[in-house]
Design a protein around this nucleic acid. Structure first.
Lengths: 165, 165
DNA sequence: ATAATACGTCAGCTTTGTTGACACTCCAAG
DNA sequence: CTTGGAGTGTCAACAAAGCTGACGTATTAT
């Protein structure tokens, strides 16, 4: 406290500051997932279903391999989730038009309805947080998060951003 | 795009912006946990052990009930983790001096060694991200994360901050 | 004395991840 | 036109880490 590290004051890089950043990240992430989790808890779905539905909505027609790369799980794990979503009529799997080995994934109306419910809840929290913190804080938030991603995930994130208008 | 919402420009509260914030949070959290996970993967421990060790280090002598409140899991779940840590000599459980029903938890030297290894890795990533983003971005990052926490978790987070110098 | 608290543990279940193995379809290249 | 490999689906077995419910045992508080 009151200890000046340099004339530029790199106080925000103190171990104590970094630890607070780590704890903030941990507690905030729990808030971040709390609302969708509550909704999902009332049905037979979990966080994995949310992720699948989110990214299918984000990039309709995406293939299984694509989804595997974004989610970073094994195909067996994803397939289990995907299968229940297809059986329950939330996701449609169409044989690829050019390459018929591929499966293009789409949300059905019911799937879109669930996606909306979940992302409405998550967006509401994000919106409140953004509003409370203000636009400059939001810009900083985004900048730090981007810098925290793994190289490959960052690439994925940025290419998703291009997609969305 | 180019659509002006108001004279104040609340463009950062667009659904598209919020969705990008959500995805940034998701991808960044994976980066956030990647390094400790890699280390833990080489031993018989997981993320749950990391959390326990982190918060015991943060508040030495904390009780089991306290830890339960911070981590938000059941005592059965925590106990499984705690038991292995105690058996392996990373955590010491002392009978409470004033109230002998309580157990005060402490890291042993070996426990501290593991905690250091894990948090060094995590801090290194946080430090790089902070350095890359700059002090103002870091302040914004913290402000948004704080606003995203559940009321109760935010309380916990803030009381932890007081503890640390 | 009795009730409540703090802790530990047994048993069983769920979600979501993992390996490894195998089959099928289909594209592309030799 | 065959053959290798990519994309996909699925079976089996397992692990980590969460959950509920129930019970036992100290210890403290009323």
């Amino acid at each position: 406290m009151g200890e000046v590290t340099s004339s530029e004051s790199l106080l925000y890089l103190t171990d104590e500051q970094l630890r607070q950043g780590i704890e903030a990240m941990y507690f905030a992430y729990r808030g971040f997932t709390a609302d969708p989790d509550r909704i999902l808890g009332t049905m037979a779905y979990g966080r994995a279903h949310h992720r699948a539905v989110h990214f299918i909505n984000r990039a309709p027609g995406t293939t299984v391999t694509n989804l595997l790369a974004i989610l970073g799980v094994t195909k067996q794990s994803l397939n289990r989730v995907l299968r229940t979503l297809i059986e329950d009529g939330l996701v449609e799997s169409r044989v690829g038009p050019t390459d018929r080995r591929e499966r293009n994934l789409y949300l059905t109306e019911a799937g879109e309805a669930l996606e909306n419910r979940l992302s409405d809840a998550q967006r509401a929290r994000m919106r409140d947080a953004f509003r409370e913190a203000g636009p400059e804080a939001v810009a900083g938030f985004r900048r730090v998060l981007e810098a925290m991603m793994d190289r490959e995930l960052r690439r994925q994130y940025l290419s998703l951003r291009e997609t969305g208008q």
